[in-house]
Amino acid sequence: MTGEWHKSTYSGQGGNCIEAQARLTATAVRDSKDPDGPVLLFPADAWSSFVAGVKGGEFPPS
């Protein structure tokens, strides 16, 4: 995969993070502790809906 990976600014130094990489038609997501491991690809509209849900409080922190 090419391109720049980004970690949330809310991520601390605990290591329990994901990184995302925006692409033209999808967003790639991986575990920051395993950068050579598997990558999940989400269609752009699905990722946008997920982010809107998080921002709207649909997924409260546990």
Rank of each mutant, 00 (worst) to 15 (best):
D34M: 06
T2E: 12
A26Q: 13
L41D: 13
Y10C: 02
G37P: 02
D36Y: 14
P35E: 12
A46C: 10
S8E: 05
G37N: 03
G12R: 08
A26G: 05
A46E: 15
G3W: 00
D34G: 00
T2K: 13
D34Q: 10
K33R: 12
A46G: 10
D31E: 08
A26K: 09
S62D: 08
A22V: 10
A28W: 03
G56P: 05
V54I: 09
D31S: 09
G53D: 00
G53Q: 01
I18T: 11
A26M: 09
G57Y: 00
P35D: 11
P61F: 01
S49Y: 01
T27E: 02
A52G: 09
F42D: 06
Y10L: 11
T2S: 15
I18F: 08
V51Q: 07
A28E: 12
A22L: 07
V39W: 09
K33H: 02
V39K: 06
E4V: 08
A22T: 11
H6Q: 14
D45L: 13
S48P: 01
D45K: 02
G12K: 12
L41K: 04
A20G: 08
S11P: 04
K7R: 15
I18A: 11
L40G: 02
S48E: 03
D45C: 06
P60T: 09
V51I: 13
A20I: 15
D31V: 08
R23E: 08
S62L: 14
V39F: 04
G14S: 14
K7M: 14
A44R: 09
K55I: 04
M1G: 15
G15N: 00
C17P: 00
L41C: 09
L24I: 11
L24Y: 06
F59Q: 03
D36Q: 15
A22R: 13
S8D: 07
P60E: 09
Y10V: 01
A22C: 05
Y10G: 03
A46Q: 14
M1W: 10
W47C: 02
K7Q: 14
S49E: 11
E58R: 15
P35Y: 07
G3M: 02
R30A: 07
A22D: 03
W47G: 04
D34L: 12
L40Q: 08
P43H: 03
F42H: 12
V39R: 07
G3P: 01
A52I: 03
A20S: 12
T9M: 07
A52F: 02
Q13G: 14
L24V: 13
S48V: 00
D31M: 07
R30V: 06
T25E: 15
